[in-house]
């Protein structure tokens, strides 16, 4: 049913939009550095679940939006997200059969990679964050991954996005 599958694209778009909103949501002072990489997580999920629908192009565009939203150099998040989308696409069959805990560790690794790319770009621009808490989002994302996974899976099944 190509037509009905197409009509469900808004679910994916909506989830990504929510992720963007969560990224901009103000948090209390202590939690700011722990903000999970929402966009990266949701993107990893869709790349894993529907590799033929969500790919590098969408990741790149989303990354650009994230750049503009956050006021970073255009392309910084875009490059990072495109790279993790690529890796997820390559490994989506393996990721799918892993138990949740193992998945979470892998997602943590992917997001660390994303952050290394961003850090690399930032240090080229001369604005490295220089604080260990820079790495915290990867770990908070790891802790949250099982919930994200379950919520998005249920949403996907309920609305039969495929």
């Amino acid at each position: 049913m190509p037509q009905s599958a197409h009509s469900r694209s808004w679910i994916i778009a909506l989830s990504l939009l929510v992720a963007l909103m969560l990224t901009a949501m103000p948090l209390p002072e202590w939690a700011v550095n722990w903000r999970p990489a929402w966009v990266a997580m949701v993107l990893i999920y869709w790349c894993m679940a529907l590799p033929d629908r969500v790919g590098i192009g969408i990741s790149w565009t989303l990354g650009l939006l994230l750049d503009v939203q956050q006021g970073t150099v255009l392309g910084q998040n875009a490059l990072g997200l495109a790279v993790i989308a690529f890796i997820t696409l390559k490994s989506h069959q393996r990721l799918r059969v892993f138990p949740l805990v193992q998945q979470a560790f892998l997602v943590c690794g992917y997001i660390l990679l994303f952050q290394i790319i961003v850090l690399w770009i930032k240090s080229m621009l001369g604005i490295p964050p220089m604080h260990w808490s820079y790495w915290m989002p990867a770990f908070s994302s790891m802790l949250l991954w099982p919930w994200i996974f379950i919520i998005l899976r249920d949403v996907r099944r309920k609305f039969k996005v495929q």
């Binding site: 901009a24 949501m25 103000p26 700011v32 939203q69 006021g71 970073t72 964050p129 220089m130």
Partner: peptide, 9 residues
């Protein structure tokens, strides 16, 4: 606007 931008900047 109450939105968070790039951390560390």
């Amino acid at each position: 606007m109450a939105v968070e931008l790039e951390p560390f900047r």
